[in-house]
């Protein structure tokens, strides 16, 4: 057990699973980097933010494959390799690039098993960075987990901390279905205690980061951290919140969400993805249908506006959910008067 960053936790998960199972391979754009350069240096990057650094050195060219910048072919290749005996972990770099290879994920990998009458196994993991907060603008900042969640046949993981990331990634690699594993790029330097051993966290079981009596906050990915900060502030003001980290949006632990709403009677959902048809909408519908009688106040959603992610910090900050916005939403749900957030 030692303190590890989100980046280190993911690297360690990959490394331990590659040691454990020779069928696990890693591929993607610059997962090593440097091939074909003039300096002769390879493993130059280890991923654009250094997450896969050192894997090439340990596991060699056969298992750590740099790809050309051709997402359709290598994501498709990962799907094909998964269906024929390997357990690939393909990195899509920025999840926004899914526009270049959605067919391979949505029409191929996700559907093999069903279309083929249960005869296929596609143990594929696609890792990708997501999220705003880096001034990376509209094509490098989206939170597209609802897009994947919408597609039957995919599992979708949105880890909220280093401990969560390691256990969930190992689970993803050992899972026999295609898994989309989304890493919030602002979290790579976040640190916490992470066991040195390999461990798994099962999909479809939410984590309660805190338990309270007054209100339930459901938050996804990095928003869990913000929700906890807001809950800390609210606790000092006498409002006690349960914070649910669903961990996976598919499968979604609907039981835990409904149980907590039944206990608290109030719900705030914090979702970094665009507001139409996002997880907040999905969870709202769930609660409205199955826990309507438990609700003491309208459900509040904290989400970005229906715009692309803007570039300038002043706009990006306005765009993103924040601790203050969550706090305000909770107070609104508790019946407090709430000032309009600009």
């Amino acid at each position: 057990m030692s303190k590890k960053s989100f980046r280190q936790a993911i690297n360690e998960a990959l490394r331990q699973e590659m040691r454990r199972d020779p069928r696990v391979i890693v591929m993607g754009e610059d997962v090593a980097g440097g091939h074909g350069g003039t300096s002769g240096t390879v493993d130059a990057w280890g991923g654009v933010l250094g997450v896969t650094k050192g894997l090439l050195t340990e596991f060699g060219e056969d298992r750590v494959l740099d790809t050309p910048i051709t997402e359709a072919s290598y994501i498709g290749a990962a799907a094909g390799a998964a269906a024929t005996g390997l357990r690939p972990v393909a990195e899509l770099m920025f999840v926004d690039f899914v526009g270049c290879c959605l067919d391979q994920i949505m029409n191929q990998a996700a559907k093999f098993r069903y279309m083929f009458g249960g005869k296929a196994r596609t143990p594929l993991v696609i890792r990708a960075m997501f999220g705003a907060g880096f001034n990376a603008a509209a094509q490098h900042s989206q939170a597209l987990y609802p897009l994947f969640t919408h597609i039957p046949g995919l599992k979708v993981v949105v880890p909220s901390s280093p401990y969560e990331a390691k256990g969930l990634l190992i689970e993803a690699i050992r899972d026999d279905d295609p898994v989309i594993f989304l890493e919030h790029k602002v979290m790579y330097d976040d640190e916490e205690e992470v066991p040195d051993e390999a461990y798994t966290i099962p999909f479809g079981e939410a984590n309660l980061t805190r338990e309270g009596d007054d209100l339930t906050i459901v938050a996804f990915g990095r928003m869990v951290k913000l929700a906890n900060e807001a809950a800390d502030r609210l606790e000092r003001q006498g409002i006690s919140c349960t914070v649910i980290d669903p961990r996976t949006t598919s499968p979604l632990d609907t039981d835990t969400i409904l149980d907590c709403v039944a206990d608290t009677g109030r719900l705030v959902i914090v979702d970094e993805s665009s507001p139409r048809c996002n997880m907040a909408a999905d969870v709202s519908a769930l609660v409205a249908e199955y826990a309507f009688d438990a609700l003491k106040a309208p459900i509040r959603r904290v989400m970005p506006p229906h715009t692309p992610v803007p570039f300038a910090s002043v706009l990006e900050n306005l765009y993103l959910p924040s601790v203050e916005k969550i706090e305000a939403a909770v107070k609104a749900a508790m019946g407090h008067r709430v000032p309009e957030i600009a």
């Binding site: 290749a77 094909g80 390799a81 269906a83 024929t84 690939p88 391979q104 191929q108 083929f116 296929a120």
Partner: peptide, 27 residues
């Protein structure tokens, strides 16, 4: 499809197969 026969599937998407075959070849 019949993976036991090495048949990775007919495909409703034009151009769907070649990337998959890169993956099978990689395996």
């Amino acid at each position: 499809a019949d993976l036991s026969r090495g048949m990775l599937g007919a495909n409703g998407i034009v151009g769907g197969g070649p990337p998959l075959i890169c993956g099978a070849a990689l395996s």
